[in-house]
Design a binder for these strands. Sequence first.
DNA 1: TTGTAGGCGTTATCAC
DNA 2: GTGATAACGCCTACAA
Lengths: 345, 345
Amino acid sequence: MVAGYDAVTVEDDSRGVSPETSRRVTLRDVARIAGVSHQTVSRAINGKGEIDPETRRRVLEVVQQLRYRPSRHARGLVRPDTTTIGLIVADVVNPYFPELIAGVISAAEQRGWKVLISTTQDDPGREPELLRSLAGQVDALIGYLFQPEDVIAGAVEGLPLVVINRPARHPAFSAVEVDVRAGVEAAMEHLIARGHRRIGMIDCPSAADPSRRDVLLAAAAAHGVPIAADAIVEVEQSQAGGEAGLARLREVRPDVTAVMAFNDMVAMGAHRTARRLGLSMPGDIALIGFDGLSFGELLEPPLTTVGIDKRGLGELAVAQVERLLAGDTPPTVVAPTRLLIRGSA
Amino acid sequence: MVAGYDAVTVEDDSRGVSPETSRRVTLRDVARIAGVSHQTVSRAINGKGEIDPETRRRVLEVVQQLRYRPSRHARGLVRPDTTTIGLIVADVVNPYFPELIAGVISAAEQRGWKVLISTTQDDPGREPELLRSLAGQVDALIGYLFQPEDVIAGAVEGLPLVVINRPARHPAFSAVEVDVRAGVEAAMEHLIARGHRRIGMIDCPSAADPSRRDVLLAAAAAHGVPIAADAIVEVEQSQAGGEAGLARLREVRPDVTAVMAFNDMVAMGAHRTARRLGLSMPGDIALIGFDGLSFGELLEPPLTTVGIDKRGLGELAVAQVERLLAGDTPPTVVAPTRLLIRGSA
DNA sequence: TTGTAGGCGTTATCAC
DNA sequence: GTGATAACGCCTACAA
């Protein structure tokens, strides 16, 4: 009993004299004040093992009073590990991402995993920093990243990483890619079947390899409908970029009858410009986007586009993580695309 | 030394013979194989303290070879805590949420916090289970929840919780609310100023209190433009609900000239029905949504709506968490709304 | 430069 | 029913 008494005094000290130095309230603090062993407190909290109801009540009271909260780290150390994966994207609001995120979350949840999300707020420069800070908290990472591979590799230091927007050259990475080639191919065939022979593109800078532009050029050439160099304009990846893009393209090549946009955002801008110029779609000009974002359905006419199964992409990424975690080095997985013919082409 | 030797054997066992039983690779395993103390390994990994480059190289090699990864829990136990907050929403894809999530993430990031996201996949029944499982991983929770308060309270057991879609009656909760009253009020004034006198509503079931319906009725009454009981139809909260809602309303009260929808999703459905019926907006019928989702801008005519600063809502929630974590019991915070007059009313 | 001892907060196992 | 004692995997002293 003397020991208990002593302890209480110590407790009073640390709590009364210097509450600012607020050390964390621990199981032992509760135990001391409640006059029981820390083990009993544990039992009271977890409802495990036999314990006198009265003791339990008293302990829980002290728990409340001290605002005690168990340390998740201490728990994690002792209990079977919950695996947590980190997800880094540029921006949650970009309509491309929510579905992707949903795929990751649901696939993770199926496995009983948790997902930690971070965004670069559209600033790729923050990637290394984010990767580093997430790396300490998770068991693996999934990222839609733009930095050079060695920069990324340096930041994650051996943590399993799955990249979802580009090929993985670096041996430490694993990748999920979109079948851009098949998508562009399908779009091209569609346009040609509709009689288009002078096709243009509103492209954007991208780290992908091969780029959409290369793929498009190849597909067009393969079909004997070569694309003129000046029928490809490059703009910033945004709606505004798309608006400017179509305007520019019309100036340079007014004879173009069909346009493939880098993605739906850009296509939406082009769509806007087309309407502003009084061009009917698909009559005066056919327009095809890429991504298959749902807002395209709301446009008038609705946007024809190469749809990506973004949800599936997220799920595949989690599956890759699973194999990585198991010690595998899985080959790149390719997510399919599907032409969504909706009206603008 | 015998102990060490034994251990090596065990290690060999667990890796070679039964990789399924795979115990975690620890710092000590690395140390043993590298022939140094676990402390040296720690130094090699963290780059702290003096260490012979050659030793370091050798250690890191073993680290690679054994695929050693430090345990985040063990680290967390010793290092200053990263605070992590859990965020629970129904579904990331619902266009209401991405902005909210973005707000939470950016506010959290500003404070150096991490965000763990979970979704109920639109099944409120999963809330207790999710809350419980998240509770073990985070320092506080933010949730867009539908279960009764005591159910929630039981699941989080004292973890700080901020609810963002309803008032907090329970003392353990803290809340961020949307200023529905002001929003509805503004919408009402707008309609009345435009000469509308027979106003209807497409409502949905909701846990909010007071409900949007009550608020609308009060506002209407206050302006001397009472709303007939049968001018309020209740539908499921979805686009399909909205479609059915306006159709039903037109049948019962064809004289209604303006309709307030429960939210933008529902309004979009109504918008569709209006077009299908050949009703011009805002001429034949004025339509106002709620939420201020951006897709409303793409409709033709664009949807007039009561806008919510969803990003701000998320930021406010994080601020509430901060106060909660500091030991405060902050009062409910109200996020403002703003009428976005875009065309449909 | 390297190794040893102790502790972080929790749970499990075993006595009492 | 309750309480010691020993892990869990890591890091920060401090000693060698």
